[in-house]
Write a protein that binds this DNA or RNA. Structure first.
Length: 467
RNA sequence: GCCCCCAUCGUCCAGCGGCCUAGGACGCCUGCCUUUCACGCAGGUAACACGGGUUCGAAUCCCGUUGGGGGUGCCA
């Protein structure tokens, strides 16, 4: 039997990295077993039914290269099936009407000295359907529901712990629990792979499954949660969780996917950075571990840097463009002052040094601005200039020779080296600081030769004034 | 509160009863390379939460404790 998995996100306005990880693991499982994946949008709640929300899910998935064979299906469009199922459950006595609101239920619980929540009051009250009525599922009073989870083994829930949950809201819309059971059955889903936060809802779906007589149940696999540094579930409010935002910041989709695949799973040979084809080949759902995983940006950065360095330089240059030119680029130079040829000349050197595209401007800013700023408080400046030997002498000599040195990389370089030799001091680093504003960066002279002589002289003078 | 899940270096992953004086990766530190920085290379730092069992033998199995997390919605 071909395996069929589904990624079923609720459209909340953007794709969460945790959801992306779920999508990825579903996809990896489908790919590794030669199975199929379907995309299903869980928009049973009217508030979630907005077309722009769909794009916010579909687009990032496409960018990541996570493909699906069927869909997107919309639960909202399958509503009739869900409504029918609810009706069937009422008719068969598995469900009943209830006209208590959440507040009323809590109040009654308080009066009865019970924990907050609904305690089955409407069960046999013979309530007729009405405007304010929900439909609740009658959970068994005894027995237990056992989930055979691929990742967690057997998980047992006693039925007494399960309250009579709502399967149809008072506005008539069925909840996702019904939709889940019906849709998974109709779509012949064989494996439900999703976050651990849904583990507690699984017994309810299984109860519905049996009550509706839907046949063989899918196999479940509950993935460990992705957490922040406080070990709490990644949340929209506290954390950076929008996958598209990461992509916009300059993380490569391949790097993102590689990193995500390493959260909760590891290849048996310990080779972490590798093509997706190999990950598919090595991936085993039963090897996914149970503990929650911290989404570590530092590691993502390292992986991203590796992928960037692997890029053909031409690709790097074209991908870098939005970060150095145009309205969205965060740059400190005037767009007119940007020179694509100069960038292309130094691009290979920049590529070796960045872990992310948004770091590019900091490496080339000095080539396109008139003045550079000296961060006199920085460690690098202190080491190179404040603690440097004969800095004033070097800068004075540089300024003098640069007024008439031949304006080529080699000649400029030679002139500065000569100054160092004559003064018996290290002259290259001070020269670099004067011209670029910092002690760290790409090789200096090819870029420096593209600057105007007066610009360089002014920068030397500017640094000289500080020492 | 109740239910469920989890527990190996700071972080991610390996380990599925002897190969473990616990391995790899990120981070951090040191050195080499380098006219800077980065890459690369060579080292270093650092963990089996605790207590009981079971066993000739436990990071690995069982129980308990503690700690963390998730759920507890007419959200999904």
């Amino acid at each position: 039997m071909t395996t069929r998995v589904r990624f079923a996100p609720a459209p909340t306005g953007f794709l969460h990295v945790g959801s992306a990880r779920s999508a990825l693991f579903n996809w990896l499982y489908a790919q590794s077993t030669g199975g199929e994946m379907i995309l299903r949008i869980e928009d049973t709640d009217a508030a979630l039914r907005k077309p722009e929300f769909i794009d916010a899910i579909v687009k990032p998935l496409e960018t990541l290269g996570i493909t699906w064979d069927e869909g997107p299906y919309y639960q909202s469009q399958r509503r009739q099936f869900h409504v029918d199922a609810v009706e069937k459950l009422v008719e068969s006595g598995h469900a009943y009407f209830c006209n208590l609101t959440r507040e009323q239920a809590d109040e009654r619980a308080k009066e009865a000295g019970l924990p907050a929540g609904y305690h089955g009051w409407s069960r046999d009250a013979g309530i007729e359907d009405g405007d304010d009525c929900v439909v609740r599922f009658r959970t068994p009073d005894t027995g237990e529901v056992v989930i055979d989870d691929v990742i967690r083994g057997q998980v047992t829930f006693s039925c007494v712990e399960l309250e009579d949950f709502v399967i149809r809201r008072s506005d008539g819309s069925p909840t996702f629990l019904v939709a889940n059971a019906i849709d998974d059955a109709d779509m012949s889903i064989t494996h439900v792979i999703r976050g651990e936060d849904l583990l507690n809802t699984t017994p309810k779906v299984m109860l519905l499954w049996d009550a509706l007589d839907l046949g063989e149940k899918p196999t479940y696999a509950h993935l460990p949660l992705l957490v922040n540094e406080q070990r709490k579930k990644l949340s929209k409010r506290r954390d950076d969780v929008s996958l598209m935002d990461f992509l916009k910041q300059g993380y490569l989709p391949e790097a993102m996917v590689n990193h995500l695949a390493l959260l909760g799973w590891g290849p048996p040979d310990d080779v972490e950075i590798r093509p997706i084809s190999e990950i598919i080949e090595l991936f085993k759902l039963e090897n996914v571990n149970k503990g929650s995983a911290f989404f570590d940006i530092a590691k993502l950065n390292h992986i991203n840097g590796d992928y960037i360095r692997q890029l053909p330089v031409e690709t790097f240059i074209s991908m870098a463009e939005p970060f150095v030119y145009g309205v969205d680029a965060e740059i400190d130079w005037a767009t007119n002052d940007y020179d694509a040829d100069v960038f292309a000349m130094v691009a290979a050197e920049v590529q070796q040094r960045v872990e992310n595209f948004d770091q590019i401007p900091s490496f080339v800013s000095w080539l396109f601005t008139t003045e550079v700023t000296f961060d006199t408080e920085s460690k690098g400046f202190k080491k190179a200039i404040i603690k440097g030997k004969m800095i004033p002498e070097i800068l004075d000599a540089m300024h003098e020779r640069f007024t008439d040195v031949a304006w080529t990389a080699d000649e400029m370089n030679a002139a500065v080296s000569a100054i160092g030799d004559e003064l018996g001091a290290r002259s290259q680093v001070p020269a670099r600081v004067a011209i670029t504003g910092t002690n760290a960066g790409i090789p200096l002279w090819d870029g420096a030769a593209t600057l105007d002589r007066q610009v360089v002289l002014d920068r030397i003078a500017a640094l000289r004034a500080l020492v």
